[in-house]
Design a protein around this nucleic acid. Structure first.
Lengths: 208, 208
DNA sequence: CCGCAACTGGACTATTTCGTCCAGTCTATT
DNA sequence: AATAGACTGGACGAAATAGTCCAGTTGCGG
């Protein structure tokens, strides 16, 4: 999944890998809060406690760093979602998943939005390879949701007629739209409402 | 709705107003395509054919210009939606509304996303008064959707039990999420799917 | 028709920010 | 433990960009 993002060929020592990781996590944190455009490389240098020459040693430039941040954030989100959704096979489980996301977003009153969604809005029209990475990440995330929906079908809680892929897309749309509205309003209520509507629809498609 | 955005007190002549409007539309077009951060004031000056001193004559700075762009774009979107939704009172009418938005977005293969949504993602965490304007615009837009849903209730096409406000929020969430996914994938399919799910849910709530 | 205020235009400055360079330090291997 | 090569640090340069200033023009009220 993760594309080769360090200068090709050269192998990293353990120390180098650690430094590189420190740069990425610092950049990811800053970018999540301030956005790509408002995050300067000097900010990243200061936050990571790494010299600028190292930043350019590990990354070809700001674009490459941003792409690495996308990969990193993507892995984090996918990993979190994989853990959260792995065992879910009921509507109630999906509701608990929703609750966790809403509560987590509540902590910052909806600010900053979805880690992946904000990145997408930020770079999609500016960096095509970054956009494609994000596209694949969204697809993977939707795949996890589709897996849950298939399990609902297997247990008979969801009609076998419906397209789990389309429902997963709809659910992801509701989630991302909810994040965006919550970000604009600084209140998670619309996010909860938006996801609830998607879940209610899924529930209404139960067998019989 | 539109806040006073030109230096208070001074009255604009017709020529001044025209120049001011030209700046705003040029900036709005650039910002829609490139985003706020990637749009420079020199770009705006070049695109509008207006001198920089005039830009600063009409706007206190970049932030004020961006806020004016938000007001302008907001009015445009709300006006468009008001016209599109005014007479809608059936599910089929909502479907035609959906078709028009999807087709329009198809022209650019989903790029740039929703004029209001992109702005929100761009500035919400950086300018609180801009965020609040956007919040109000979303609320107004949702109000138009809620109006349609109330008409559905009046004609008996929608159960009088359901909350039209919540459904409108869910529909707006699906719309915005759909825009974002389409932007990431460069394909309007997920946008269509996302809205369709919301509409299917609304349709499933018909009386009886 | 005249004068004053508002509008127009573009050259200029200060600051920010991306990216480079070089000198010194650490580490793995022989 | 010596050396080669990889890693670290910060000072430096160049470009872009927000914002300022002043000289010239236009148009409206008296």
């Amino acid at each position: 999944m993760t594309t080769a993002d360090s200068p090709e060929g050269r192998r990293l020592t353990a120390r180098g890998a650690k430094t590189r990781a420190r740069i990425i996590t610092a950049a990811a944190d800053l970018i999540y809060v301030r956005g790509v455009g408002a995050t300067t490389l000097d900010d990243v240098v200061a936050a990571s406690g790494v010299s600028k020459s190292q930043l350019y040693h590990h990354f070809a430039g700001k674009g490459a760093l941003v792409r690495a941040v996308i990969d990193h954030t993507g892995e984090r989100v996918i990993e979190r979602e994989r853990a959260a959704l792995r065992q879910v096979s009921t509507i109630a489980g999906l509701r608990r998943w929703r609750d966790a996301l809403v509560e987590s977003n509540e902590l910052q009153h909806g600010a900053y939005g979805c880690a992946l969604g904000s990145l997408a809005a930020d770079v999609a029209d500016h960096d095509d390879v970054a956009r494609q990475s994000l596209s694949e990440l969204f697809t993977e995330w939707q795949g996890l949701l589709a897996g849950v929906l298939r399990r609902l079908q297997d247990t008979g809680a969801l009609s076998p007629e419906v397209s789990t892929d389309q429902l997963a897309t709809g659910l992801m749309g509701a989630l991302q739209g909810g994040y965006l509205l919550a970000q604009a309003v600084h209140d998670v209520t619309p996010m909860a409402t938006s996801i609830d509507m998607a879940l209610a629809h899924i529930e209404s498609l139960s067998t019989g």
